[in-house]
């Protein structure tokens, strides 16, 4: 092991590799999650965003390398905010509250109830009958009502109409516990970049972690443009798809 920095971490991945059917998806990646940080995981389709989250959650085990968790006392290691699609659609808010309470000892039911009420989400309506925005806020309310040091969210803004995205951002910022961190996979980097402290770029099976403020101060570009340049997509131009072409090119 290399010399440790004194800095506190919640999660440390070292040389983690993961393949599906012998097709490598992630190769020897590293990831550090420090407390009180919001991290965005960006990458093209199939770059391994969800796999990375599941490795962080412990839902997948690395085939090589190590995933270490450093859990402050009184907290649980992770809370994976299940996307509405992964929750049983027939369950009502009340059912889901009971479900979470039975499954997770660290679930704060009163907080979750308070959140649902303040968001105006009816507790007696099945999940599938909620609007997509309400369904996402419900799933985030459940996830954030666990006492975890690391929260995971997979594409919290997808399926949400642009007008409601601000609500989701503000919801996360308002209710994230202070010393905990949030790791979220996202396609909508432009919608999230100002609330991200760090960006994790998945590209060609590797991961690069960089602070968004250093992207802005060092390179003078937005996190989204930086991501596009790093992954060989460049700025999207009208009329050209451009994907695929730039993908294989090796940089000097």
């Amino acid at each position: 092991m290399r010399e440790e920095t004194k800095e506190r971490l919640l999660l440390r991945m070292r040389q983690v590799s993961f393949s599906y059917d012998r097709k490598p998806l992630l190769r020897q990646i590293h990831l550090d999650v420090r407390p009180g940080r919001i991290l965005g995981v960006a990458g093209g389709n199939g770059a391994g965003k969800t796999t990375l989250l599941k490795l962080a959650a412990g839902l997948l085990l690395p085939q090589e390398g190590t995933v270490e968790r450093f859990v402050p006392e009184g907290l649980c290691p992770v809370s994976y905010c299940m996307p509405p699609g992964e929750l049983p659609g027939w369950m009502t808010g009340r059912d889901l509250l009971a479900y979470y309470r039975h499954f997770f000892q660290d679930f704060r039911r009163q907080q979750a109830e308070g959140l649902l009420d303040s968001l105006g989400i009816p507790r007696n309506r099945p999940l599938y009958r909620l609007s997509s925005g309400q369904a996402v806020l419900l799933s985030l309310s459940l996830g954030l009502s666990r006492q975890a040091c690391l929260y995971l969210a997979d594409e919290p803004l997808s399926h949400i109409e642009p007008a409601l995205r601000r609500d989701v951002r503000r919801f996360l910022l308002r209710y994230m516990p202070e010393e905990s961190s949030l790791l979220m996979a996202t396609h909508q980097l432009g919608e999230l970049e100002y609330m991200l402290d760090e960006l994790v770029i998945l590209h060609r099976h590797t991961a690069r972690q960089i602070e968004t403020e250093s992207i802005r101060s060092q390179y003078g570009v937005s996190a989204e443009d930086y991501f596009l340049a790093e992954t060989g997509r460049g700025k999207p131009e009208a009329g050209t798809s451009g994907e695929g072409q730039g993908e294989r090119r090796e940089e000097p």
């Binding site: 009180g36 940080r37 919001i38 601000r166 951002r169 503000r170 910022l173 308002r174 994230m176 202070e178 100002y194 609330m195 991200l196 402290d197 403020e213």
Partner: peptide, 17 residues
């Protein structure tokens, strides 16, 4: 810091800075 972070839609760390 939290109120400002929500208002500006930035992370609490950015607000601390």
């Amino acid at each position: 810091v939290r109120e400002y972070a929500v208002f500006y839609e930035v992370s609490p760390l950015t607000m601390h800075r």
